[in-house]
């Protein structure tokens, strides 16, 4: 396995690595399509409204309304469970 210096490795004065930064990239943002339910959004995504203004992501994982019935759009409020929504995906 190659031991190329990583840009964020911390080295001591001999040049030997004293602390090797993780090579694991930050997890990519993901979308999870819940059957007959919302889309779960995890990770670092840039959410914008139609005028391009940033939308604050209130928690690390958010659920986006897919049924159109939520009273708190764009977030899901569980209304899909009572309005007969079927995602057909």
């Amino acid at each position: 396995m190659s031991q190329e210096p990583h840009p964020t490795d911390v080295t001591n004065d001999t040049g030997a690595p004293a602390y090797r930064a993780s090579r694991t990239p930050a997890p990519r943002a993901s979308l999870t399509f819940c059957p007959d339910g919302p889309v779960l959004v995890r990770g670092d995504v840039d959410l914008r409204d139609e005028d391009g203004r940033p939308v604050d992501k209130p928690r690390p994982t958010v659920a986006l309304c897919r049924c159109g019935g939520s009273a708190i759009k764009p977030w899901c409020d569980g209304t899909h469970k009572v309005n007969g929504y079927r995602s057909l995906d």
Binding site: T32, G37, P38, L40, V62, I72, W75, C76, D77, G78
Partner: peptide, 13 residues
């Protein structure tokens, strides 16, 4: 309202 709409999906699946 918003948090548990997320949690219920994670909890069930």
């Amino acid at each position: 309202v918003a948090a548990d709409a997320v949690h219920e999906q994670i909890a069930a699946r």
